[in-house]
């Protein structure tokens, strides 16, 4: 599906988005010049560790940043040529849910604890279809719940969120998100709170919905496995910036940024049984006071003491092939002799 999808016009384009938080210790640039496109039927995976800005980016897209601390300092989010960031409250509300919908990590905190699930899905149906009668909306809600795999939804929908399991709750959230056939679904760690067997079910559900409705999905996750299973394109974020952006096949087969390469190399796997994992040293930087130059330089195996990494912020540039980008001064060295061993790339087949 990826080749056809990519040649089509993107449904949503995030262009040079920057987000800043005002804190007691000065401004924090949580998202710094991030761009990504997602086309119909395409899944873009955004991967990164805690604090890398991936969730902030998603919230900013829909104008959901915590106020007043967070603000968008630059960039645009284009859907159908309209910039969501310039829309007023009213217009933005019309876009949310109807054109761009979002699914969060924790369905329990996103659901009203004292309202039945069916009532909440019905409510979501009516938000953008006010002319719908109560009973028609309810019918639609039942259909939606059955669409996301809730059998016997009419009866079970009467239950309250705490009576449903985590996986079922996430299904209900997805049902609400797709109630108005949005063109883009932003899913922020949708399966992180779920068990692996249930995670597999929910991912499959997302896949099915996408195939049926040509849905564009932005899938945010820390789990490289989940991204590999789902994404057509992958955007890797580190310290608020995009460090690599390519097709999924390329990112996993030939990572072009030492951070991506390091992450992949550090995953426990068969070939490494009984050997130490090639771990990335150190921990992610504090964004209050980020490292100079390349944010990854203190942990990078490729740097080898070179000054340029400290002096100059690397820009995202094309390496290897069309549409394969990385932000590293020395990305070319990654798949040649010394560079590869420095970050443990060679271990991966």
């Amino acid at each position: 599906m990826s080749t056809t999808a990519e040649s089509r016009q993107p449904v949503m384009s995030i262009r040079n988005l920057s987000v800043c938080f005002d804190t007691a210790h000065g401004p924090v640039h949580a998202v710094d010049d991030v761009s990504l496109d997602v086309g119909p039927g395409q899944t873009v995976g955004v991967v990164g560790e805690s604090g890398c800005g991936k969730t902030t980016m998603a919230l900013a897209t829909l104008g959901l940043l915590p106020q007043p601390a967070g603000r968008v300092t630059a960039g645009e989010v284009l859907v159908d040529g309209r910039d969501l960031l310039t829309l007023g409250r009213r217009e933005l509300c019309r876009v949310r849910g109807a054109e761009v919908a979002m699914v969060f990590q924790d369905p329990m905190s996103a659901l009203h604890p004292a309202q039945s699930i069916l009532a909440q899905v019905t409510e979501a149906v009516r938000t953008h279809a006010l002319d719908l009668s109560a009973s028609a909306a309810r019918e639609r809600a039942v259909d939606l719940l059955e669409l996301v795999g809730v059998a016997d939804a009419r009866a079970r929908g009467r239950a309250y969120p705490h009576e449903w399991s985590g996986g079922m709750r996430q299904r209900a959230m997805i049902a609400m998100a797709v109630a108005h056939r949005p063109r883009v679904l932003i899913a922020d760690e949708p399966t992180t709170a779920l068990d692996v067997t249930v995670q597999a079910q929910v991912l499959e559900l997302l896949q099915t919905l996408q195939d049926e409705h040509d849905l564009a999905i932005v899938l945010i996750s820390h789990d490289l496995g989940v991204i590999a299973e789902m994404a057509d394109r992958v955007v890797v974020m580190y310290a608020g910036q995009v460090v690599e952006s390519s097709t999924a096949t390329d990112v996993f087969a030939r990572p072009r940024h030492p951070y991506t390469a390091g992450l992949l190399a550090s995953l426990p796997r068969l070939e490494l049984e009984g050997q130490p994992l090639p771990a990335i040293p150190g921990s992610p930087p504090n964004l209050v006071d980020p490292p100079a130059g390349c944010a990854f330089h203190p942990r990078c195996g490729l740097r080898q003491g070179r000054r340029r990494c400290v002096a100059e912020v690397p820009v995202l540039r094309e390496i290897g092939g069309v549409g394969q980008c990385a932000a590293c001064h020395y990305a070319e060295e990654l798949h040649s002799g010394t560079g590869a061993t420095a970050v443990g790339v060679g271990v991966r087949p």
């Binding site: 067997t197 995670q199 597999a200 299973e229 096949t249 996993f252």
Partner: peptide, 15 residues
């Protein structure tokens, strides 16, 4: 078997 199969694999070619 189900548990092992459900673990996502970081390799798109095995999807």
């Amino acid at each position: 078997q189900a548990l092992l199969a459900a673990v996502p694999i970081p390799d798109p070619s095995r999807r």
